[in-house]
Computed example of a mutant assay.
Amino acid sequence: MKLTGEDVRAFVLSLPETAEQFAWGMPIFKVAGRLFLTLPEEETSMAVRCPIIDRDELVQAEPAKFWIADHEAGNAWVRVRLAALDDRAEMTAIITDSWQLAAPRALLEQGER
């Protein structure tokens, strides 16, 4: 199954308080005004929040799937090649993790009720 930017967009927009905008020549997605995902490279990849230590481990373990853009090297972001994802479940797990890293605590606590 080849995942696309439209697959990413459909799932992202199903998450609470998420909005799509356009910046830096690409679609970007925010939760409660906080950036958590972009669709660069003509929507063939996604950039997501990821703690730097985890990001570095992902890139070392699966360099065909994950990489770090030069301008994001000092930030907690990782790029993900959509065509390299195993399935929709992997895509949604990665997106959900990024969303949770950006979402305000109050929003996360609402989901726990």
Rank of each mutant, 00 (worst) to 15 (best):
D7L: 09
H71E: 06
T92G: 01
R81W: 01
A93S: 10
L35T: 01
E112Y: 03
R55M: 10
A76L: 07
V31M: 03
L107I: 09
D54Q: 13
H71L: 01
P40Y: 11
E109T: 07
P51D: 13
G25Q: 09
L3V: 13
Q110M: 04
A76F: 05
T18M: 12
D7S: 00
R81P: 01
A10W: 00
P16G: 11
L58H: 07
P51S: 11
L35G: 07
P63L: 07
R34Y: 05
V48P: 03
G25N: 12
K2H: 13
E57D: 13
K30M: 06
L13N: 06
M46A: 12
G111D: 02
L35N: 13
G5R: 12
L101Y: 15
A69T: 00
G33M: 07
A19Q: 12
R105L: 15
L82Y: 06
P40A: 03
G5W: 07
Q21V: 02
F66E: 07
P27Y: 02
T4D: 05
K30F: 05
V59N: 13
W99N: 05
S45A: 15
D87T: 07
L15M: 12
R105Q: 15
G5P: 04
S45Q: 10
P63S: 02
G25I: 01
E109S: 03
A61R: 12
Q60A: 15
E17F: 09
V12R: 11
A23H: 09
A10L: 10
P16C: 02
M91F: 01
Q110G: 01
T44N: 14
F36E: 07
D87L: 06
I28Y: 00
M91W: 06
W67E: 11
A10D: 03
Q100W: 00
H71V: 08
A69H: 10
Q60S: 14
E72G: 00
A47V: 14
H71T: 01
E43Y: 04
R34E: 12
A76D: 14
V48L: 15
A89Y: 00
D86C: 04
V12K: 04
L101M: 15
